[in-house]
């Protein structure tokens, strides 16, 4: 698919697809969900590709679409997590992340979407708060508040030993 400007979706994806997927990983927390989110984003972009290709900042547009899709994302029932009695064997992904801060990563996934998106845009994409506010459609104060609360949750929960939490909870 091409446009008069010459920027095709394939050329764009070839150059920026991996960057978009990385952002999707930071938003969703898993490789498979990130792939789903990227696919959904591409579908949305393809519907208005002429607009994307002629935008002054195509990647900014794509990033905004992805974040909005993430915030509105409701996975189908078959994709949602469900409780199981026994955990399956570790996947290649889980094995490959051994040694990294998995507790912190899992905790990040429990944050409200707005907070997680704010943290990803601020600390992974290195965007200024003004730009984050535009993307999320909120005020600068809300961005700062979301970031502050997200960081506080991570700091307070992650740095406290789990046993202490259990003890405090009387388990």
């Amino acid at each position: 698919m091409t446009t008069g400007e010459g920027l095709s979706v394939e050329a764009y994806a070839g150059a920026r697809g991996l960057a978009l997927l990385r952002l999707a990983v930071m938003l969703t927390g898993t490789a498979s969900d990130a792939e789903d989110l990227l696919q959904t984003t591409y579908e949305r972009l393809l519907r208005n590709w002429d607009k994307v290709a002629t935008a002054s900042q195509p990647h900014a547009y794509a990033r905004r679409v992805m974040v909005n899709e993430f915030l509105q994302w409701k996975r189908s029932p078959s994709q949602r997590e469900s409780p199981v009695e026994h955990l399956p064997e570790p996947t290649a992904y889980e094995e490959s992340t051994a040694g990294t801060d998995d507790d912190g990563w899992r905790l990040l996934a429990t944050l409200p979407k707005q907070q997680r998106a704010t943290l990803a845009l601020r600390y992974y994409e290195d965007l200024p708060d003004e730009r984050i506010a535009e993307i999320l459609g909120c005020s600068h104060a809300t961005v700062r508040s979301n970031a502050s609360r997200g960081l506080a949750t991570l700091r307070d929960t992650h740095r406290t030993p789990r046993q202490d939490l259990d003890k405090e909870a009387g388990r």
């Binding site: 999707a24 930071m26 792939e35 959904t40 990563w105």
Partner: peptide, 29 residues
Amino acid sequence: DIRTLFRAHEHLATPARAQRALVAATARR
């Protein structure tokens, strides 16, 4: 800390997954 946390998981994004998402989206479209 959080920058390090994000960057430590960059490797979950692979070119194969990015390519697959594009192929699936294009086909669906």
